[in-house]
Write a protein that binds this DNA or RNA. Structure first.
Lengths: 174, 174
DNA sequence: ACCTGAACACCGTTCAAGT
DNA sequence: ACCTGAACACCGTTCAAGT
């Protein structure tokens, strides 16, 4: 049977995280799923936490940053905010929701922290571009990001999403 | 040394939950802290999950329901919404924040689910009392509750809370 | 370079035996 | 009625030994 590389473990871990949350990233069950013993894992990684961190870093690179670059591409700040409201509600953000649910773990909390910083800054910039003062833009951005978190957590039904998007845009775009 | 009752375990568990989240509710460490062995625990409870559920039920009875009864006491719906915005930001809701962080666990998820149902219903009623249609009130309530969740998760600094409360009231009270 | 297999620590759970 | 103490299963981690 083919031997494994670091990437195989990372892929399996991210998959498990999306489906079962951070508790799903466990050495023995993953080893079983990959058809090796636990000892194999510790050749590639020092600890289980290193695997989790590597999996979440991959997600950050490949998915999380995409939202920010998409926002960067839009010149009109109001349009930028609408794009965000749309993204927040268009598809269920399963990995992000799992991050929120697993925020107790420091590794997961750190990823959320980085994400919060970057996204809040981008949103605040959009509001400044709309003419709000720096302080007001910062508060508004915290509100918007809190909303983003809350909606990801609640995972509203598909039937509710259209109405919610309208509601959000009316509330948040000046 | 005095023997323990069910309540002693529940109290210790809720304390541990508030400080270290759901992972802090662990039989062996709690037993050590209480000065007994693990076997003692299993005389009072069938499983560790039963202890967690009992601790969170106590919290629901003693604290969570208080918000709803406080809202019930206010006749003016706009005043009711202001009260909620105020509550959401006045003191850091540590237990609620830990619930969000531990939502991966089914027991914790169930408590959050109950809380979401009850609070969203109360908020939707306030908006209907303000004259919104049922559908619009329901959407708005989801937005408000999502915001409540997001802010509990973010735990904004004390310096930001006053500004945020103003922002919230302006956004949410019709 | 990658893996096995056995060991140890830690926690959840069970249960016979003690007071 | 409440607790001890020893057992077992499961997962994280280590490491000597194999290919």
């Amino acid at each position: 049977m083919a031997r494994l590389g670091r990437d195989d473990w990372v892929a399996a871990a991210l998959d498990a995280f999306e489906r079962h949350g951070s508790a799903g990233v466990a050495v023995v069950p993953l080893a079983k799923a990959l058809g090796v013993t636990r000892g194999s894992f510790y050749w590639h990684f020092d600890t289980r936490d290193e695997l989790l961190a590597a999996a979440l870093e991959r997600w950050e690179r490949e998915h999380s940053d995409a939202v920010l670059t998409a926002m960067d591409a839009v010149a009109d700040p109001r349009e930028r905010l609408r794009l965000l409201a749309d993204r927040a509600l268009s598809k269920p953000p399963t990995i992000f929701a799992q991050l929120l649910r697993g925020a107790e773990e420091p590794i997961v909390g750190a990823v959320l922290e980085r994400s919060a910083q970057a996204r809040t800054a981008a949103i605040a910039k959009a509001y400044r571009d709309c003419g709000l003062t720096a302080a007001s833009a910062r508060h508004r951005a915290t509100v918007v990001y809190a909303l983003y978190i809350g909606l990801a957590h609640l995972q509203p039904s598909a039937r509710d999403r259209a109405g919610l998007t309208r509601e959000l845009v009316a509330l948040l775009v000046p």
